[in-house]
Amino acid sequence: MTTPALDIIHLNKTYNGHHAVDDISFSIEPGEIFGLLGPNGAGKSTTINMISGVTRIDKGTITVFGYDNQKAYRTTRRMIGVMHQEVVIDNFFTIDQTLRFHAGYYGIPDDPQWRTTLIDRLGLRPHLHKVMIKLSGGLKRRFMIAKALIHKPNLLILDEPTAGVDVELRHTLWEFIREINHQGTTILLTTHYLEEAEQMCKRIAIMNHGKLITLEETHRLLQQFGARRVMVRLNRPYPELPNGLDAFSVEPLDPFSLRLTLPNQMTVSELLIVLQRLDLPIVDLETERAGLEDIFLQITQSKEPT
């Protein structure tokens, strides 16, 4: 069995009697892109802070590629690169100087070739001699990614990397992160953009109120909770809904269109047969699957603690 890139066992953190992280356990395989989702205050950032060493662990253990992150913290911190959710500013140094310092903090001599690669790939070259406060929001995010990668970590943690970033940059960032992943870097990410998690992550864990409530492969999660819906458009308005559609939770959209939810085992062609029998003349048909967004709401709402 391969050593997990990250193994969290019975992790707990309490702030003033409030369980910010409540006995969570999960592992991430090497090379995986793993999504940690949850509403604000679910405990995602606290978990990430305990992995990276910013926050002390109350109870439980975290191992990174087999090393305990408390006993062997110098080893694990070298293996981890973190991009924090909050943009932090250093007004004293240019981003170029900060990148060089950052490699040094990790005990890695400056590698100009790698630094140049990061600078160019993240479009930072025209801004190298600016202090961070002078950068736009998007540039700050790009710089933070460069900083997280400067020591070539094996596990990259991205806490809301695309918060407040425009669509084009988001696309570029994800492309870059995929490339980093293909190079062998394991990735743990949290995001509020669920469609991103859906596209990027092999597995997804959902946290709420400090607890881990679901951990599933992304496609299974979509299968399990993702009901298929079919939108049909008719060539004449229907005066009233015919009987025989009770099983499909029909939603009339307009006089010509209906939305039906497909039962789990039923195929679209079986649905078409049913509709034909009811003499509904179909002009057009569109199927859609519930996205992670719907699933996320279903899960977090259905598992609210009482």
């Binding site: 070298r78 310092f101 040094g104 903090y105 990790y106 005990g107 890695i108 001599p109 590698d111 070739q113 790698w114 690669t117 790939r121 020591h151 070539k152 490339e179 980093i180 190079q183 062998g184 870097t185």
Partner: peptide, 17 residues
């Protein structure tokens, strides 16, 4: 892009930096 992984750790470099 290729991530060079073979890097030596210098124990006191964090301090000097």
């Amino acid at each position: 892009m290729n991530i060079p992984r073979n890097q030596r750790f210098h124990s006191w470099l964090p301090f000097y930096t």
